[in-house]
Structure formats: C-alpha cells, structure tokens
C-alpha cells in the first residue's frame, strides 16, 4: 500500500462523488456516479480485497449504473428545476462530517500499519460461503428474489 496510490485514488473518488452530488444535469451525475465506483473498487484492490473490488465493478457499474440511466431515460423531466439545490442539506452534511472527524481524531488506539496476511482467494470465499455463511447466503437469495418480484409488481401496468 503506497501513500501516492492512496492519494491519487482518494482525489479521483472524492472529485467524482462531488460531481455526482452537485452536477445539475441528471445524466452527467449518473455517469460520475459510475466513475466514482471505479475509484472505490481501487480502494478495495489497495486494501487486498480483490474479489470485493471486482464484485463492486460488476454490480455497480454493470448493473446499478445502467439501471439508473434507464430510469433517467424513462422518467425524463423536461422542466429543468433551477433552484433544486438547498443549503440546509449542505449544513447538515458538514456538521456530520465534523462530528465524524472529531470522533476519529479522539480515538487513540487505531493501528497504524496493516499486519501481513495471506491473500483472500476466491476459493476461500467460496468455502466460507458454503460453510459458515450458508444461512446469510440463503437469506440474501430470498431477499433478491423478493426484490425482483416486488420491483416487477411496482412497475406493472394497473388495469383500470
């Protein structure tokens, strides 16, 4: 883990996140949202969790970003709302950030250097998913099925 790589990915991710939060055009924001997830998976690679980084790229850039772009195209609001930004949210966000920074700075015993570990292979994750984490895996399967059916029912045409 090098500090240079960390700083580069941090600036990239935070710039993309700020663009996604503040750009007035919805489509530009959605595309910066996808770019931000490239940076976040960069952090996962940096921290040695390669599988999570790849899952993040597949799920977010491959599925969620495309879903958001489809929704934007399906619900095109032609009335451009100029005064859509409200400063109350910015004040709350800055207050929460200050509180979190205060809490992190007050915590004394945070470890400074990561210990040496053997890399987490996909085989290890698969074995854990089939042994220790088999109940959460089944629950996530049920949840995803319920979300699929629920999303379909929500957007189904109502017969009137």
């Amino acid at each position: 883990m090098s500090t240079v790589a960390f700083a580069a990915i941090a600036i990239f991710t935070l710039a993309a996140a700020l663009a996604a939060a503040t750009l007035p055009k919805l489509m530009h924001a959605a595309l910066s949202f996808a770019v931000m997830f490239v940076g976040i998976s960069g952090f996962f690679f940096l921290l040695g969790a390669e599988f999570v980084g790849l899952v993040q790229i597949f799920v977010y850039i491959g599925a969620v970003a495309v879903l958001i772009v489809f929704t934007i195209l399906l619900t095109r609001d032609d009335v451009e709302n100029v005064r859509s930004f409200q400063w109350g949210g910015a004040i709350v966000a800055i207050a929460v950030f200050a509180g979190l920074i205060w809490a992190i700075a007050k915590t004394k015993s945070l470890p400074l250097t990561p210990p040496q570990i053997e890399p987490v292979t996909v085989q290890r994750i698969g074995e854990l998913l089939m042994t220790n984490y088999v109940w959460p895996l089944q629950c996530v399967g049920v949840l995803l099925t319920a979300a699929l059916i629920g999303a379909l029912i929500l957007v189904m045409e109502e017969k009137s």
Binding site: L14, A17, L18, A20, A21, T22, S84, F85, Q86, W87, G88, G89, A90, V92, A93, I94, V96, F97, L100
Partner: peptide, 11 residues
C-alpha cells in the same frame, strides 16, 4: 458518506 448525505438531503 457526507457527500452522499449532501446529495440525499439537498437535491
């Protein structure tokens, strides 16, 4: 997290 909060609250 705070940038996400900003996006969720102010837009």
């Amino acid at each position: 997290f705070c940038i996400g909060l900003l996006a969720a609250l102010s837009r």
